[in-house]
Amino acid sequence: MTTLDVRVAPVTEPRARFRDLLASEWLKLWSLRSTGWSLLLGALAVIAFNLGTAWDHYRYWLQYDAASRAEFVAKDMALWDAFTYNAAMVLILASAATGAVAVVGEYGSGLIRTSFTAVPARGSLMAAKVLVVTVTQSAFGAVVAGASFWSTQAMLSARDIGLPITHPGAVRIVVASALLAPVCAVTGMALGALLRRSAVSIVGAVVLLLLLPAVLSDRRHLTAVLAHATPLHAWERLADMGPATETPFPWTTGAAWLVYALWVLGAAAVTVVAVRRRDQ
């Protein structure tokens, strides 16, 4: 008998296109039940905090003296009700937790092994995940910030003290509050990629994004510089309608926008590099 040697051409698996990775990560994000619920509950909590503050001013407006009313109008304090400090803290926590779960959830279920086997280009996979979460959280922040501004100013307009979106500084507050969501979400992703445990990552986000800015004083130069480098203080600077010279170490809104950008870029880089340098 004669044996024939037949050469079989090797089959090369086509490399995954980035748009395919985006579609995959979009499906994985929304396949988690926690995604929809966390966005809904987070939005309701944030809007409720803002509406609660506006309601207090609406309810007790007639009990304020003339000087207090004049100061409220002169300082555009209606804009402070559009997005309050408490609402910002809730938004930070909700967005950071969502970002962390988007990464850690795959490690907990073991799906990350399948993902890396199907897509050996780990950096591209994580970059797609970062982009999907960023877009989702940007939309979430825009809806929450826009709804908060509209609802609070509509309530205050019943007392003729509400302000339109065209008022100086109004757009800046809405945009700064909306972008706070993706900044903190990508930071949560970076912590998730490094720590790989849901509870630990969320605690780390609370410490980094909430507790650390709270203990940093702006009365000394070093701590003021460190405080200004945090997203929470950057949001405060952007949302503050008062003069920047009221603090011992004033800084500009341009620097606050730069803090936003650096946190997003730095956290995204950490998320991508972390999976390249560590085993799955």
Rank of each mutant, 00 (worst) to 15 (best):
W251L: 05
P182R: 11
L222F: 04
L180Y: 00
D218A: 13
T247A: 09
V206I: 15
I202A: 08
R196W: 07
T252F: 00
A205S: 15
V225K: 04
L216Y: 01
M189E: 09
P231A: 12
P213T: 10
L210Q: 10
I202M: 08
A205D: 09
L238E: 11
P243K: 14
M189C: 06
L232S: 01
L212T: 13
L209M: 06
P231C: 13
T247P: 05
L209W: 05
A239M: 01
V225C: 03
A190H: 05
R237N: 10
W235P: 03
T245G: 10
P213A: 14
T223E: 09
L232Q: 15
G254C: 03
P250K: 14
T187K: 02
L194H: 01
V203R: 06
L212F: 15
W251D: 05
V206K: 04
S198Q: 12
T230P: 06
H228C: 01
A193R: 14
G192D: 12
A185Q: 07
T230A: 10
L222W: 09
G242V: 10
L216V: 03
G242P: 12
A234S: 15
S177P: 02
L180I: 06
V225R: 03
A185E: 08
R219C: 03
R197T: 07
L195T: 02
P231F: 09
T230C: 13
V225S: 08
R237E: 06
A199I: 01
A255T: 12
A214N: 10
P243W: 09
L216M: 13
A229Q: 11
L180G: 08
H228W: 04
A190D: 15
P248S: 12
C184H: 07
W235K: 11
A199K: 04
S201T: 11
S198H: 06
V183P: 03
L195G: 06
L194F: 09
P213H: 01
L209C: 14
G242Y: 14
I202R: 09
R196I: 00
V206G: 11
V186K: 01
L222T: 05
F249L: 08
V203S: 10
A190T: 12
H228D: 04
G242S: 15
A229G: 10
A224W: 08
A199M: 11
R237K: 09
M189H: 10
P243S: 14
R237M: 03
P243Q: 13
S201H: 11
E246V: 10
L226V: 02
G188P: 11
S201M: 05
H228F: 02
D240S: 14
L209S: 07
P243H: 14
A234D: 02
L222P: 00
R237I: 13
L195E: 00
L222K: 01
P182L: 01
V203I: 14
S177M: 02
G254S: 00
G188M: 01
M241R: 07
H221V: 08
L194K: 09
L210I: 15
A224K: 07
V183E: 00
E236G: 01
L216E: 07
T247Q: 13
T252H: 13
L210P: 10
S177D: 02
P182M: 07
H221M: 11
A224N: 14
